[in-house]
Nucleic acid binder design. Sequence first.
DNA 1: TTGATCCTTCCAATGATGGGAAGGTCAAGG
DNA 2: CCTTGACCTTCCCATCATTGGAAGGATCAA
Lengths: 162, 162
Amino acid sequence: MNIGQAAEASGVSAKMIRYYESIGLIARTVRTEAGYRVYSENDVHNLRFIRRARDLGFSVERIGELVSLWRDRSRASTDVKRLALDHVAALEQKAAELQAMADTLRHLAEHCRGDDRPECPIIAGLAAGDLPSPPSRTARKFGGSIGRPPAEHVIDDLPTKA
Amino acid sequence: MNIGQAAEASGVSAKMIRYYESIGLIARTVRTEAGYRVYSENDVHNLRFIRRARDLGFSVERIGELVSLWRDRSRASTDVKRLALDHVAALEQKAAELQAMADTLRHLAEHCRGDDRPECPIIAGLAAGDLPSPPSRTARKFGGSIGRPPAEHVIDDLPTKA
DNA sequence: TTGATCCTTCCAATGATGGGAAGGTCAAGG
DNA sequence: CCTTGACCTTCCCATCATTGGAAGGATCAA
């Protein structure tokens, strides 16, 4: 099986398969004379494992840990469980942080009339508001990436009190 | 005020202030003869605005949109409200996705005895499990970055059925 | 044989931020 | 006056997972 077919079958892009190989997450495969990588059904299975773990939000580094636990026959299920529960806790904390951000922003929006007039408590709230304790660095990553073309935006002068 | 004091006062690091300037989010400041950037109280105010918006999870690009709405005297509050509510919806969706990941993983973990024996439904579930529909690309970013040193990890051979 | 489609490697970009090097500037104290 | 240390400047690099593309070779079907 060539890399393209393995990608199709596993749901991991060919690009990523090569990347996982390069960082040592998966082993180097057999090559054809021409240098093409050759994959077995088992390789595809392994790739699917990785993909599922990624879908559950495990980082590649974490997956490496899972994989080494897996390969180690003498591993105790305690270790896996701890890893999983740590991850559950981290996911839940981040979910809660995002929800808190949403709540804060929704609160601001609720007081915005949303009409043609320029008065807007959202802007005012951002400018002057007391915000709850800042979220974790990771939670911030969730800002944008949802559509709309960029606008020209240079702050020259903002009102000191909105 | 030098950049260090502006950073201290605004909660935005000097590095990030220079970065925001470089991408055009804030205007170029006055410089001293020696080339030092000079900031006013108003600049600090603007930086704080940006920082608060970042804390609410707005991307820099989005903040640019907010800023241009702000600067435009004729902007309608509708526009700001729409931007804010879009953002609320995105935050909530992502929070829900993370929570769903956590639920799935917790479910797997609940069936793990967590003792010395190697049998572990978490690993088995990852290897064979039917996972819910894959989360959004952005939600995946949440995988790792919480501690623990890297382990050696190369998949040579994983069990086909765990 | 030709053209389409695969594969290879290498390089670059993303977003927001931190780290650091190499060098200039400034204020205070000896 | 000169040194010291704290600050500032620009520039480059790293992160993390992933995508994109270019340049060139391989394979396959017509």
